[in-house]
């Protein structure tokens, strides 16, 4: 839980992924520990490893990262 909280930072009202848009290892590690991961539409996935925050239906892209709508 501590690791999950550390992976995101509160920016305004959004929990933003600290590692940004291109850290696939971090996105996979985070999703692996998340019970709420849900596969997004296949055409919107950008990571070959399915279980990745970058493939999650609950992420919303930002210019520099994404925010998690489930936090």
């Amino acid at each position: 839980m501590i690791q999950q909280i550390a992976a995101f930072v509160l920016r305004g009202e959004q929990w933003v992924f600290r590692a940004g848009r291109d850290d696939f290892s971090a996105a996979r590690a985070q999703a692996a520990s998340c019970e709420l991961f849900a596969e997004d539409d296949e055409d919107e996935q950008i990571d070959d490893e399915l279980c990745s925050c970058y493939n999650c239906a609950y992420r919303r892209w930002l210019a520099d990262s994404f925010h998690c709508t489930k936090r």
Partner: peptide, 12 residues
């Protein structure tokens, strides 16, 4: 056209 958990725009 879509939202979380609904049919994707590409599918439509």
């Amino acid at each position: 056209t879509d939202d979380i958990g609904t049919k994707g725009t590409g599918e439509i």
